[in-house]
């Protein structure tokens, strides 16, 4: 009986511990380290928004069949339909180079002064948000959680199907 109680304690305790780490990382991702809304989720949403804005500018100069625009559009749609943190980050990491590729393509066109300004502002915003996401405290909490999944907790994590979280560093 004592052995069963100890085993139960170990299993239950490790589950609770891993779940707590995972919840913390999720909270930081969606709400920020200080729960003020300044978080990776908002940064990635802004990046997607700027991608859409760039597509709006692109429509004025490039044909509908333009590959770079289509690829970016696909990434943005995937990003919005991603269901979890790993999905969001994977789509964002795909989206950012496609935004840069489209911007590069647009710079070959004879853009109006205003559109050129829009383009550079969008690129600046994307680069800035990528940087803040990379520096965000979410990466530290995700790493803390991932570290718990290795070692002794590793087989426990597999037992409970805990997945490691992707970081942006």
């Amino acid at each position: 009986m004592l052995l069963l109680a100890v085993l139960f304690g170990v299993f239950f305790g490790s589950y609770r511990s891993l779940h707590r780490y995972e919840q913390k990382a999720e909270r930081v991702f969606y709400s920020g380290v200080e729960e003020d809304g300044l978080c990776v989720s908002s940064d990635l949403n802004v990046i997607a928004g700027e991608g859409n804005n760039m597509l709006t500018v692109a429509k004025r100069y490039l044909p509908d069949s333009e590959e770079t625009a289509a690829a970016l559009n696909e990434s943005i749609l995937s990003f919005h339909s991603a269901k979890d943190i790993n999905g969001k980050i994977a789509c964002a990491l795909e989206m950012i180079p496609r935004i840069e590729a489209l911007a590069g393509r647009l710079q070959e066109e004879d853009l109006s002064g205003k559109d050129r300004d829009y383009l550079f502002s969008q690129l600046a915003e994307v680069a800035s948000r990528e940087r803040t996401a990379r520096l965000d405290g979410y990466n530290d909490t995700a790493k803390e959680y991932n570290d718990q999944l290795t070692g002794f907790g590793g087989w426990m994590a597999k037992f409970y199907h805990f997945q490691p979280l992707t970081t942006l560093r």
């Binding site: 300044l38 700027e50 550079f120 969008q122 600046a124 915003e125 800035s128 948000r129």
Partner: peptide, 18 residues
């Protein structure tokens, strides 16, 4: 600073600098 991000976005900074 993070308190100014809403008012002066990085895109705004880019434009002002330019």
């Amino acid at each position: 600073g993070k308190g100014l991000e809403d008012r002066i976005s990085s895109g705004d900074l880019d434009q002002i600098l330019y």
